[in-house]
């Protein structure tokens, strides 16, 4: 079971030219991901089983208890929910990463950005497992992929970069303000209800249109839903918003990291 990750990603890595940095990020991400499932009986199977069961519950709940004006509401809901859970996981684990990886940064010289990349990479592996579950379920419910599904990887990379930017900013602030996690819990709660996860983008645009430019996940969620659920062409305006957002956040993250990282060992 433990070699499942190697079986999936190993051949890809073997075909790439030997690159220590890539390998380093990969091994850090892999052990991080494995640690989460290490002690459970079914091991890595949970990574797939968990979202599949969750999706089954949503499907049953929305089919029998709450009828929605949208068909297959669980499939409608899931892309948004997964994007938001991924964003939360990357930012929450990134916030305390300096402390968690202190045993490494204190003893070996390397580029500290790599541990953020690995942490986001680890969450990204889980994110991919979730979407495998999504595709299994959507095939079962006879919602098949289309040509628009091909945009999917680009949208995932977009939210990965945004999440990583936020993780770096938060971890830099966390060096000086230890209780930033409580503030962040409230911010992400507000983020959940202002994103088009349960609501439609039309609802959001009618009441709070400006959040499209402020919310880190709205652009990705809308386009992901178009690609995976509605099978429509992307909203190019939102696509551009998402990528400009990623560039701006990463630039701010770079400034924060430069300012705070020299104090990481002293203050953490």
């Amino acid at each position: 079971m433990a070699s499942l990750l190697n079986q999936i990603f190993g051949p890809i890595l073997e075909r790439l030219p030997e690159n220590n940095r890539l390998e380093r990020i990969w091994i850090l991400a892999k052990v991080d991901f494995k640690k989460r499932y290490y002690d459970s009986g079914l091991g890595l199977i949970w990574a797939l089983l968990n979202p599949l069961l969750r999706l089954a519950v949503y499907t049953l709940a929305f089919a029998y208890i709450r009828t929605s004006r949208i068909d297959n509401f669980a499939l409608y809901l899931f892309p948004g929910l997964l994007v938001w859970l991924f964003f939360m996981e990357v930012t929450n684990s990134g916030m305390t990463i300096m402390k968690a990886k202190r045993y490494l940064i204190e003893n070996i010289q390397f580029n500290w950005i790599d541990i953020y990349l690995a942490s986001a990479g680890s969450a990204f592996i889980g994110f991919c497992f979730n979407f495998v579950a999504f595709f299994i379920m959507s095939t079962y419910l006879e919602v098949y992929p289309s040509v628009y599904t091909l945009w999917f990887p680009l949208l995932m990379i977009n939210i990965l970069l945004i999440s990583m930017g936020f993780a770096i900013i938060l971890s830099s602030i966390n060096i000086f303000l230890k209780d930033i996690n409580h503030v962040w819990a409230i911010v992400t709660l507000a983020g959940f209800w202002t994103a088009p996860i349960f609501f439609t983008i039309e609802d959001i645009m009618a009441k709070i249109p400006w959040t499209v430019y402020v919310h880190p996940a709205t652009a990705t969620i809308v386009n992901l839903r178009k690609a995976l659920f509605y099978h429509e062409q992307m909203d190019w305006h939102l696509f551009a918003v998402g990528w400009i957002y990623a560039v701006v956040v990463l630039f701010i993250a770079y400034l924060f990291f430069k300012w705070a990282s020299p104090y990481a060992i002293e203050k953490v």
């Binding site: 030997e18 690159n19 220590n20 390998e23 380093r24 091994i27 850090l28 052990v31 494995k34 640690k35 290490y38 045993y103 490494l104 204190e106 003893n107 070996i108 010289q109 390397f110």
Partner: peptide
């Protein structure tokens, strides 16, 4: 590389994994 008794090991990982993590951080493929 700094070596102390509480050296760069993650106690939640195996020796194999710790060797690969430490090695790749030191720039070894």
């Amino acid at each position: 590389m700094r070596l102390s008794l509480a050296m760069g090991f993650d106690p939640g990982l195996t020796a194999r994994e710790n060797i690969y993590v430490n090695g790749s951080l030191l720039g070894i493929t």
